[in-house]
């Protein structure tokens, strides 16, 4: 490339505009075209691969689980089934919840899945720990609000709750909102 420029200059016409050499022009156009042609399949494939990241979170149905009269200050266990879509499969999956009323009479529901390693917690499972959720696997304990007292690194998850016509409905599981 340099030789080429020198050649031009030696002809007595100073190359002030720094014109592009033929070789530069060809490598830019060929490189650009090649890059463009490669980018189309690449973009399509990448978008295809990351699609799950860009999907909105699936809306969860409300499921009727128990009459509101049956809910007391002491947590009650409920089991219910929810329709779960897994790609091209649809199935009914079992869920559990512990439902109780707080001091101001509001109904709330906690997920029984231990935040340590995922075993199932139970209210007053261990006689030594009254008024607490206890996990039999590694002795994690939680308050009635789900606050983690031992072993577990986080409070129990909570369900979205709605009361309609005297029944309790549950849907999505979300991080605990009742403790700090």
């Amino acid at each position: 490339m340099q030789d080429h420029n020198k050649e031009q200059q030696s002809h007595g016409k100073p190359n002030k505009r720094r014109e592009m050499t033929r070789r530069q022009f060809l490598s830019y156009t060929l490189g650009g075209t090649g890059g463009f042609m490669m980018s189309l399949p690449l973009i399509a494939n990448l978008r295809f691969a990351v699609d799950p990241l860009l999907q909105p979170k699936a809306e969860s149905d409300w499921v009727k689980v128990i009459d509101v009269e049956k809910i007391t200050d002491t947590p009650t266990a409920v089991n219910f089934e929810k329709n779960v879509v897994d790609g091209w499969y649809e199935s009914d999956k079992g869920f559990g919840a512990w439902i109780s009323k707080d001091a101001s009479g509001d109904v709330f529901a906690l997920s029984p899945i231990c935040k340590h390693l995922g075993c199932t917690v139970e209210w007053e499972k261990n006689v030594n720990y009254p008024n607490e959720y206890f996990c039999p696997c590694h002795a994690a304990r939680y308050t009635k609000d789900g606050k983690n007292l031992a072993v577990a690194p986080a409070p129990l998850d909570e369900y979205d709750v709605k009361i309609e016509n005297g029944s309790v409905y549950l849907s999505q599981i979300k991080p605990n909102t009742r403790v700090e």
């Binding site: 799950p52 699936a58 790609g87």
Partner: peptide, 8 residues
């Protein structure tokens, strides 16, 4: 590939 360990 989604919200659970499953088909995808």
């Amino acid at each position: 590939g989604g919200e659970i360990v499953g088909a995808q």
